[in-house]
Design a protein around this nucleic acid. Sequence first.
DNA 1: CTAGGGTTAG
Length: 636
Amino acid sequence: MSLIQHSTNHIHLLQIHALILKTSLDVDIVVLTKLLGKMFSQSTLIGYDLSYARKLFDIIPQPDTFMFNTMIRGYLKSNKPEDCLSLFMRMCRQDGVCIDSFSLSVVLQSCGRSVDCKNGKYLHAQSLKLGFGSDLFVQTALIEMYGRFGLVEVSRKVFDEIKDPDCISCNVMLAEYVRVREMGLAREFFDKMSDRDLVSWNTMIHGYASTGDVESAQDLFDTSTRKDVVSWTSMIAACAKSRCSSNALKLFHEMQLSNVVPDQVTMVSVLCACGDIGALGMGKTIHEYIKRSSIELDIRLSTSLVDMYAKCGDIDNAVSCFKQMRKKDVFAWSAMIMGLANHGYGEAALDLFSKMISEGTKPNDITFIGVLTACSHIGLVDKGWTYFNAMSDVYGIPPKIEHYGNMIDILGRAGRLQEARELIRSMPFKPDAVIWRALLGACKIYRNVELAEEAMVKLVAIEPDVDGNFVLLSNVYSQAKQWHKVVNVRRIIKNNKIHRIPGSSSIEVGNVIVEFIAGDKSHLQSDQIYKMLSEIMHRLKEAGYEPLTTSVLQDVDEKEKETLLAHHSEKLAIAFGILNTAPGVPIRIVKNLRVCDDCHSAIKIISIIYNRKIIIRDRNRFHHFVAGTCSCKDYW
DNA sequence: CTAGGGTTAG
């Protein structure tokens, strides 16, 4: 008994359980219920843990109401609505066991979570019949249930019938408004609440965050006088999700300064932010922290680690975290497949996909994004088609426009432009900008001016002011040596106030991210950086490098074009990296746009001259430059 | 009994 009371680790509890089974100890029902309850109070039980709990339940000759309630609540918490319902039914039939308001509230919640309207409404009627119509537990469960059914007005009606609503029932009502994204109604309700607790505030903060209204979330967060780990995590998650990642990391820092201890949920959002901006050092620090602390490495946190390492260019650590996972679900597999694909390990990604299938995890539409990306990056056209067709034929997943986009990319990069064009024509979606840009990009590689112009016409109709599209078109013309058309594109960009997205590259040194834009002179070390850069350029030329000035859009002389190329953000970041890291240490760069052809060939040589591994994450994929070659094998 | 978390075409 004391063992059970003091155990906080569920593996430990399972051991105690095994001991009871093995020794056939004559333990009484109170002890068993305690053990069962304790098992469920440790995070959410999954898979075999849950069946252990059930085994324990089943050895009890005559479970009482409390025991039944513990078990059905366990099923609710473990997201097993069918089991919850069927055990509840057995409970109803069992002599000497009576249904109380707790049992009813659990099973009503369960119907809500599984959107089981039929049973839900039936059980609602039964609760009224049994005289639980004005029980607060039951009423609260009903609010939640109807909310999950999408009937928030019915929830409100139930709420209005409560004579003396407590804070929890108000919070549940508030949460249902938030769930259906009715932030106006939620705010009105929140403002009228007489006593609001932390949960009410946190529900609102999360509500704003989930609608993408980070500003309102922040306002509310700033006005709240008490902030716990959930408040901070909601705010950090809001920033991470809306990709204000450095803000997320700043908040995490502030959180620690205010002595609120992060938990595994916080870490997931922090790692997400690290992955977004490629903050590997920070990510590693978090990983170390997790290992040192008692934070539980659950399936979501592990997936975040895998994803963070992959997005930060450290694929080896991503793989090792993935291998250490005790249980893997479709999220974990998909994250790993995507990571491998983006690093150019297409075969490994596809092997992993097969392994996932053979181990019994069903893929989803996102898994196939990873699978098709793998095919795209290593040029597997036929395999791409096979997987694309298998999606609907074998797995019953209808391809979305994203999958068509992937397929068009696969075909285009492989030079099968007409096939790509035909797929756009035949697909059941209206082609979007991404689709046309994929085709345009392929036209650039294969110098197809005619198709490029067609794609550009469509593209301009959707995105009239995106400079990248014009840059692509201009590159098509310069590849095809149609200089008069290049001049024309330049004129359009100049005269039409085309919005220019500056290329920027960032690099992390000592856990600090430093960002460069082309021609950047703002850094304190600027003089040194440019000195380094001219040394690099000098040595590059000695090694036979020739600047690819034809890709420069500005109308300036040759010398000036060379300078512009030399000052591209990724080159600045590399110069900074060589200056500020020890010899031999890999240099990792994150770029917001795609690496240009000139930088790509220059960096290959830099990797030889300076004997450095240079890892660049661009908009599209990873490039690992080692000893003069790139992992993309120039197929990008 | 109520609040926060993971994979997503270019």
